[in-house]
């Protein structure tokens, strides 16, 4: 187990290296002078030159990359062109709401998807299963912000149960924080739920058609015991996999969800960075989000071993 874990951890290094080279190299493959891109078209030549020197663009590519990578490895993500603050600090200030949103969205997605997916698989071809398939395909096809607006129209503007938007930090008022996070987490979780639910159903159907399930039925095992103890355990690998792979879309969804609900997290920081053309911040955000995705998938690979002791690499 330890050896496998170490191997998997080492395997993430080349992936992160590719991301780093890509994020850094982007600035150089885009047409035009990167200093002009960052300064904006209205900037004076002096401003452009100042940025060029500040960012080290006057030096050759490999020197720049070397310096950048060196700083990166010591945890320095660079300095914002707009606010002059260290990017790592800007990200640290904003990471809390985004983590809440991602975590809440994931929980809601799992709660909505796995039970319904199992139930649909157990009642294959019946009315519930057909309705389930239709609803998941439909939900899967609605862009996440439309879902957000629909939820706000119903629960905030119509029924007035929940706030329309805004974010209250949990240390200020925990109740208000929870209430405020319900709609954003639902918005984020619902689209993801469809994906997990479809995989759950397919994976359960696959397992339910296997011989050991027939044996369990034949020896008179309880229906629920078959579904949850026998089938779900064996069907869980694809479910965990899709949670890991789908985490990228969950992050993308979080950027949009934060902008609908005015949540001051990393997604908002991304949008602010775009409007200020603050490339060091965008670079830092892409790196941090990618690292998060890689870590989640590392965790998924380690969970495999817990779920299925036969897996050994």
């Amino acid at each position: 187990m330890l050896r496998y874990a170490l191997q998997r951890i080492v395997m993430t290094i080349p992936v992160m290296a590719v991301v780093a080279v890509f994020v850094f190299g982007l600035l150089f493959v885009t047409p035009g002078d990167p200093a002009v891109v960052i300064a904006g078209e209205q900037a004076s030549p002096e401003e452009v030159q100042a940025i060029r020197v500040a960012m080290g663009f006057d030096q050759p590519f490999y020197v720049q990359f070397g310096l950048w990578a060196q700083r990166l490895l010591s945890g320095d993500l660079g300095t914002s062109v707009f606010s002059r603050e260290p990017v790592a600090e800007l990200i640290a200030q904003r990471v809390g709401p985004t983590l809440s949103l991602l975590f809440g969205g994931l929980i809601i997605a799992l709660l909505l998807s796995v039970p319904f997916g199992i139930y649909a698989a157990a009642n294959r071809g019946k009315l519930f299963d057909r309705a389930f398939t239709a609803v998941t395909v439909l939900n899967f096809s609605i862009p996440n912000f439309i879902v957000g607006y629909l939820l706000v129209s119903i629960f905030a503007l119509g029924l007035r149960w929940l706030p329309v938007q805004g974010y209250v930090p949990p240390d200020r008022d925990f109740g208000a924080y929870l209430l405020g996070m319900i709609l954003p987490c639902l918005t984020l979780g619902m689209g993801f739920a469809s994906l997990i639910a479809r995989v759950t159903r397919a994976s359960m159907l696959d397992v339910l058609s296997q011989d050991f399930i027939r044996t369990a039925k034949a020896k008179g095992a309880d229906r629920n015991r078959i579904l949850f103890a026998h089938a779900l355990k064996n069907a869980s690998i694809p479910i965990v996999t899709i949670v890991g792979l789908g985490f990228a879309s969950l992050i993308g969804g979080a950027v949009i969800t934060e902008s609908i609900f005015a949540i001051p997290g990393l997604g908002r920081l991304t949008l602010e960075a775009i409007s200020h053309r603050d490339y060091p911040v965008i670079q830092g955000l892409v790196l941090v989000f990618s690292a998060g995705y890689v870590l989640v998938n590392l965790a998924v690979d380690l969970i495999y071993v817990l779920l299925d002791p036969r897996i050994r690499y």
Binding site: A248, T270, N297
Partner: peptide, 23 residues
Amino acid sequence: MRIMDGLMSVPSILLAIALMSLT
């Protein structure tokens, strides 16, 4: 495949945002 893995580990919306903000 390592390059493809790297590209796939950048969340798509963010990757597109980064590309769009530059070009």
